Computed example of a mutant assay.
Amino acid sequence: MRASVVGVLLVGLLAGFGGATASADPNPPVDACVLTDKRVAELSGLVADGERWYAVNDGGTKSTVYVLTRDCVVERLISGPTDPYDVEDLARAQDGTFWLSDTGDNDKKRETVALIALTPAGKTTLYRLTYPDGPHDTEALLLDRDNVPYLITKNPLGSAEIYRPAGTLASPGPTALERVGAVRMTGTDTQGGPVPPLVGSVLVTGAASMPDGSAVALRTYTDAYLYAVSDGDLLAALGKEPVRVPLPNEQQGEAIAFEPDGTLVSASEGTGQPIRTVAGAAGLIAPSPAPAPEPETPATPPAGGIDLGASDEPGGQDGLPTLPAIGLTVVIIGGALLFLRRRRTR
Rank of each mutant, 00 (worst) to 15 (best):
A114Y: 05
L126T: 08
P120R: 04
T119G: 09
T112Q: 13
L129E: 13
L115M: 07
G134D: 10
L142F: 13
L115Q: 04
L129Q: 11
T130A: 13
L143D: 15
L129I: 11
P135K: 08
A121D: 12
T130L: 13
R145F: 06
L126H: 09
E139C: 11
L115W: 01
G134E: 08
P120C: 12
D146A: 15
Y127E: 12
A117Q: 04
V113G: 06
A140M: 06
T112P: 04
A121G: 11
P135T: 07
G122A: 12
A114L: 04
T125I: 12
A114W: 07
P135E: 11
P132L: 06
A121I: 00
L143M: 14
P132E: 12
I116T: 10
D144M: 05
T130K: 14
L118E: 01
D144E: 07
T130D: 08
T125S: 10
E139S: 11
L141R: 01
T124E: 11
P132D: 10
T124M: 10
D137M: 09
P120N: 03
T124C: 09
D137F: 01
G122C: 04
T119R: 01
R145Q: 15
D146M: 09
T119V: 02
G134W: 13
R110D: 12
A121E: 15
L129K: 12
Y131P: 06
A114K: 06
L143Y: 10
P120E: 09
L126E: 13
R110Y: 03
E139H: 10
T125C: 07
A140T: 00
H136N: 08
R145G: 14
E139P: 10
Y131Q: 02
P132K: 10
H136L: 05
L142V: 07
A114V: 00
K123G: 11
I116G: 00
I116H: 02
H136K: 15
D137A: 10
V113T: 15
P120I: 07
R128P: 04
L115H: 02
R145A: 15
A114P: 11
Y127Q: 03
L143G: 14
H136F: 09
G122T: 05
P120A: 03
P120Y: 03
L115V: 04
T125A: 13
T119W: 05
G122H: 02
T125F: 08
R110P: 02
A117G: 09
G134Q: 08
A117M: 06
